[in-house]
């Protein structure tokens, strides 16, 4: 173990890791801009074939993982039903396109209806915690699947297929735009009391309540924000995919996949879920589907289990921990305030 530690120290010394984080913190907006610029150039480099699809999907999964993380990572309410809003958004644009032949108004409507649905669902499920919350959200996802299978406007189990005339690059830029706006918004919010309050709810919700904050408003707002981006991503995806049916729209496996992405990258961060989403999807599409056809889900289960056991805080989270490991002592933490001897005088009740 110790030899592993020393080699890790040589490979990623805490001071260097901290320098990366400090650089990222100082130049966050510039980095976001550069990222978007690079993203904008990609279609000109890869053309509009298979690789553009993969790139678009990578961006989409980054949006989904980041959205999941607003509630699951930042606020501490891990949902198994995030895909509910993906499905709602997907069906809204699909129906709008089928019945009225339009895409952009449908995309806006997908966002609006996802917000409305999230307000109603969130007010109910966000009163639950832990396993109950997780299973309730899973129940919502499966309920929506069942309803969609049985009503006529969604064309039941057969789903809706269409010949979209929009080029793949349009969807690519929609996903890029969604990711850019979402990452920027979340970065901005992370420096406001709204962002702090979400993190505080994750760390100790009862304390936040005792400090005079009605946590329900914050939780539901975060949940709606996540639903907005998820719904719009779903809205773009159904036309991008030329087809939507209940099992793919409300995909439980994808729901687990995007949790794995956020977890692998590092929950509670912004970079983590983005890198996790893009990275894991690239691996799945370019590697797993080629060499392990039909085993995607089995490998996904394996990745989740290994991540949880080996790097529970994710790659970015792990780096962050390394970067701040020495903070306390470097700031004279051992000397300021209490000595360790003061911690044993307690009289437990």
């Amino acid at each position: 173990m110790s030899s592993l530690d020393t080699s890790l120290d040589r490979l990623v010394p805490p001071t260097r890791v901290r320098a990366w984080f400090e650089f990222g913190g100082r130049h966050a907006w510039t980095l976001l801009g550069v990222g978007l610029l690079v993203g904008a150039v990609v279609p000109f480099v890869v053309g509009d074939g298979f690789y553009l699809s993969v790139a678009g999907e990578m961006l989409m999964f980054a949006v989904l993982a980041l959205s999941w993380d607003i509630v699951g990572g930042q606020t501490g309410y891990p949902s198994f039903g995030q895909m509910a809003f993906f499905g709602i958004g997907g069906y809204v644009t699909a129906i709008m396109f089928r019945d009225f032949g339009v895409f952009w108004p449908g995309l806006v409507l997908a966002g609006v209806l996802s917000l409305v649905a999230a307000a109603v669902i969130g007010a109910v499920v966000l009163r639950l915690r832990g396993g109950y919350f997780a299973i309730a959200t899973l129940g919502i996802l499966l309920t929506l699947t069942e309803i969609t299978r049985n009503i006529s406007i969604t064309n039941g189990v057969d789903g809706i297929s269409f010949l979209s005339t929009l080029p793949a690059t349009t969807f690519y830029y929609v996903f890029l735009g969604l990711l850019g706006v979402e990452a920027g918004l979340l970065y901005y919010l992370s420096q406001t009391r709204f962002g702090y309050t979400l993190n505080a709810i994750r760390d100790d919700e009862a304390k936040v309540n005792a400090m005079g904050v009605n946590t329900t408003y914050y939780k539901v707002t975060a949940w709606m924000l996540a639903a907005l981006f998820t719904g719009m991503a779903g809205g773009a995806w159904s036309l991008f995919n030329f087809f939507i049916d209940p099992l793919t729209a409300y995909n439980t496996a994808w729901n687990v996949e995007l949790i794995a992405m956020a977890l692998l990258g590092g929950t509670g961060t912004i970079v983590g879920p983005i890198l996790g989403g893009m990275g894991l999807h690239a691996i799945i599409r370019l590697f797993v589907e080629t060499y392990f056809t039909g085993w995607q889900l089995g490998l996904l289960g394996l990745i989740i289990i290994v991540t949880i056991i080996v790097v529970p805080s994710g790659v970015v989270g792990w780096l962050e921990e390394r970067a701040s490991a020495m903070d306390y002592y470097e700031h004279g933490g051992g000397a300021a305030g209490e000595e360790s001897g003061g911690e044993t005088g307690g009289e437990p009740e």
Partner: peptide, 10 residues
């Protein structure tokens, strides 16, 4: 510093 790293008294 992260608050979780502080001593009990702190």
């Amino acid at each position: 510093v992260k608050a979780g790293r502080l001593s009990f008294g702190q």
